[in-house]
């Protein structure tokens, strides 16, 4: 009974917590890339004379940017398939929020102990991205169509890397329950798998989060805003909110799968934060160092990297399964 109440309470707590952490990660992404680019970025400590006007910190700037959109007019184009166009952002958000219920946070196992939680979480993350494709397709804009097409192509190859890395770990740990994986012990073999499968997962995250060089679905110089061209107001805000949750969800999934047992006990929380910051830093470094690939180059690159690395992962995972 106590367990049930604790789970319910933690499910309620995790949503604002995930939003907050997602916003902080987005802030870090923006701030770090700004510093890499000789810019200032959103201020952590505001200049003294601007404090009365802008507040002491702009740490939540990514959130303000989203909230602003909720106050704007929402335009639905005439030529769109209205129902799909309007519901897609919300469905996408719902799936993203549902996914984070299955990913543990230090001190909060949430639903990660349920059978097959790894498959459920992966499915929910995929579904969330699927609806960022379906809505734009329904909008009837050529830019959105091209953006969605690129998104599909990118999605197929990045998903390949994602699945290969996640299930290599599942095979090595002989479990499809995230909680079992994240509470498992560490050893030299698992550390080796963490390096290779973690690298593949990071590569897959680049595609899922549209980090350069894989942001071609949103290439503003070519196709305006890509899938989001026709979206505005609340609907666009919902898509951005989804992205924040996805960023949190993928980082949390990475830590719980590849860095056990950080995501289990509340005492690991400081290390969890450090791991998350390092991950975001890695993503930022890739983001600022690269221009955008063409979609074909991106697919080639993914196939060249994901398949050999994935096969390597499986070999290591099988070896661990058989030997250890």
């Amino acid at each position: 009974m106590v367990d049930l109440i604790y789970t319910v309470v933690s499910l309620i707590v995790i949503v604002p917590l995930a939003l907050f952490l997602g916003v902080i990660y987005s802030y870090l992404l923006r701030k770090l890339s700004a510093r890499f680019q000789w810019r200032v970025g959103p201020m952590f400590r505001m200049y003294g004379d601007l404090k009365p006007l802008l507040g002491t910190t702009r740490l939540l700037q990514p959130l303000y940017d989203i909230l602003k959109l909720y106050g704007k007019e929402t335009v639905v184009p005439d030529v769109s398939r209205r129902r799909l166009f309007v519901y897609s952002p919300y469905l996408s958000l719902i799936f993203a929020v549902a996914a984070i219920f299955f990913i543990p946070f230090p001190g909060m196992p949430l639903l990660s102990g349920v059978p097959y939680s790894l498959i459920i979480a992966s499915y929910l993350l995929i579904a969330s991205i699927l609806f960022t494709i379906l809505g734009p397709v329904a909008s009837g804009s050529p830019w959105a169509a091209i953006g969605a097409r690129r998104e599909v192509e990118l999605f197929l190859v990045s998903e390949l890397g994602f699945v290969l890395s996640v299930f290599a770990v599942a095979i090595a740990r002989q479990s499809l329950v995230i909680w079992d994986i994240s509470s498992g012990g560490q050893s030299v073999y698992f550390a080796l798998l963490t390096v290779t499968a973690g690298a593949l997962m990071l590569v897959a995250m680049l595609g899922k989060l549209h980090i350069k060089p894989f942001d071609m679905p949103e290439a503003e110089a070519e196709i305006v805003a890509g899938p989001y061209t026709e979206y505005s107001g609340k609907l666009l805000g919902t898509y951005y909110l989804t992205k924040v949750f996805l960023l949190y969800g993928l980082v949390a999934l990475f830590i719980s799968l590849f860095l056990p047992p950080i995501a289990t006990d509340v005492l690991w929380l400081p290390l969890y934060i450090v791991a998350a910051v390092v991950l975001v830093f890695l993503l930022t470094a890739v983001q600022v160092l690269n221009p955008r690939y063409r979609i074909r180059n991106a697919i080639n690159w993914y196939l060249k990297v994901a398949i050999p690395l994935g096969v390597l992962n499986f070999v290591i995972a099988l070896a661990i399964w058989l030997v250890v």
């Binding site: 890339s33 890499f36 680019q37 000789w38 942001d215 221009p291």
Partner: peptide
Amino acid sequence: VADVIGWKTGFMLTWG
């Protein structure tokens, strides 16, 4: 051109 191919860093540095 750096901006057009999506490289904001190159853009910022050259313009600096």
